[in-house]
Design a protein around this nucleic acid. Structure first.
Length: 422
RNA sequence: GGAGAGAUGGCAGAGUGGUCGAAUGCACCGGUCUUGAAAACCGGCGUACCGAGAGGUACCCAGGGUUCGAAUCCCUGUCUCUCCGCCA
């Protein structure tokens, strides 16, 4: 959520910034400001009445104590009128507050200066390319064929047990998953991220904290009996560790990571992109999360990008980094870099990581603050990124490391496995 | 699943209708003392909102209610703990 202060101080800037998303914020911002003005007047009046009531109550108490019953009763009658006014105003204030909140929830984060205006993914900027380009002298197979040929992943079995999008990893396929998870976790640890194993199910408050609710409930699996949600990413439980937290000092830099399965309903996504591992309802991911002082956000983001880049280089994959345009940047994000890996067999780029800075957008909902220089509380900045999501990495590894007879394993993974090829 | 207990400031814990935003202890911050530290002593020490400021308002799990007045009484909900049962 944006800070109301910011809306009051620089509404034009926000409206202007959101144009980069092709989001017309003006009517919402105007409406908020109008209601905010009303609200401020109403709450001023309400507080005055409350103060008057408090005064009278004390007076009545004193009168009763000193035995002046009649005077006390007279005063009592006077309070009736005030009470009525008070409850009316209270209702008005609450109603306005509710309306303002609802409008605030509709405003996405304001894109960072570097973010270009754009409607969709076709406007994203490629900011970097690297890694090893793979050239085949034979016809490479897509990973779904390789997976069944080498008995690594059984998609049909997953359909039987659960449904489409829930593959079963078997034998070396399963071990490869485990190796990747360990590799990613150890790399994260080396980079200073403290490992966590959080719950894979979260409550409603956590969903609101990181912004999945009220917006994207349709994308999460929901357990109505307990009012709990399966996590779509470790970002949710990891970031919510810091919900309702005020960090005591101004110098802090919190770096945590965690492996979890991720569950996504992916409602409304059909077509060819869903083949094989390309889009799943359950997948594994190692997530890195940072809580930073606003002054340190830029540096933190750079470090995260370097970290993810490092992983892709160690795995020997061809990659590119995109800075998403306004329209393709997630609702809660101020700036997002997507990492894509090239699959020579599928002849396309596969998104394997997304690194974002949210600035105060999440921390306002989370109420995550720190004590600043002058003992004032300020909102922290949050960032997170996948480091990395497994399925498409597996797809790219299988496809790019295939030979005519089998599949090689990148050297960095050897220490996690008892075999060097499939 | 059954039975019971509870939810108060960073923590512990008092407070059962009036001046309680809340005793006290611990922790924390500043100071005195000390060569330094400890101890002792003095002072400070929740959050949010409105207001230019003075100041005011709200918050004792959440939401309702009773009352001139609620941390305190009533209702509903949530959560936690203990015991029993079941079970990895």
């Amino acid at each position: 959520m944006l800070e109301i202060q910011r809306l009051r101080n620089e509404p034009e800037k926000i409206v202007e910034g959101l144009k980069k998303r092709f989001f017309d914020a003006e009517p919402i911002v105007d409406s908020i400001l109008k209601k905010d003005k009303e609200w401020r007047i109403a709450i001023g009046e309400l507080q005055e009445i409350a103060a008057e009531m408090n005064r009278m109550s004390k007076e009545i108490g004193g009168l009763f104590k000193s035995g002046k019953k009649e005077e006390a009763n007279q005063l009592k009658e006077k309070t009736q009128e005030l009470k009525k006014k008070e409850s009316e105003l209270k209702e008005k204030v609450n109603q306005l507050q509710k309306e303002i909140d609802e409008l605030m929830y509709q405003l996405p984060n304001v894109p960072h200066d570097l973010v270009k205006a754009g409607k969709d993914e076709s406007d994203n900027e490629v900011v970097e390319e690297g890694g090893v380009k793979r050239i085949f002298d034979f016809d490479p197979l897509p990973h779904w064929d390789l997976a069944s040929k080498h008995n690594l992943i059984d998609f049909e079995l997953g359909v039987k047990i659960t449904g489409a999008g829930f593959p079963v990893y078997k034998g070396k396929g399963a071990k490869l998953q485990r190796a990747l998870i360990n590799f990613f976790l150890e790399e994260a640890e080396k980079a200073g991220y403290e490992e966590h194993i959080p719950p894979h199910v979260v409550n409603e408050a956590s969903g609101y904290g990181t912004g999945q609710l009220p917006d994207k409930e349709g994308q999460m699996y929901y357990i109505p009996e307990d009012n709990l949600y399966l996590i779509p990413t470790a970002e949710v439980p990891l970031t919510n560790i810091f919900r309702d937290v005020i960090l005591p000092k101004k110098d802090f830099s919190i770096k945590i990571c965690g492996y979890t399965p991720c569950f996504r309903r992916e409602a409304g996504s059909y077509g060819k992109d869903v083949r094989g591992l390309n889009r799943l309802h359950q997948f594994d991911k190692v997530e890195i999360v940072r809580i930073e002082h606003p002054d340190n956000t830029e540096k933190a983001l750079d470090e995260m990008i370097s970290h993810v880049r490092g992983l892709l280089e160690k795995l020997g994959l061809q990659y590119r980094i995109l800075r998403l345009c306004g329209g393709d940047t997630g609702f809660t994000s101020a700036m997002t870099y997507d990492f894509e890996v090239y699959s020579a067999a599928q002849k396309k780029w596969l998104e394997v990581s997304s690194v974002s800075r949210f600035d105060t957008f999440q921390s306002t909902r989370l109420k995550l603050r720190f004590k600043g220089e002058d003992k004032k509380t300020r909102y922290c900045h949050t960032l997170n990124g996948s480091a990395l999501a497994l399925p498409r990495i597996v797809a790219a590894l299988l496809e790019n490391y295939q030979t005519e007879t089998g599949i090689e394993i990148p050297e960095v993974l050897h220490r996690y496995l008892s075999f060097k090829e499939i």
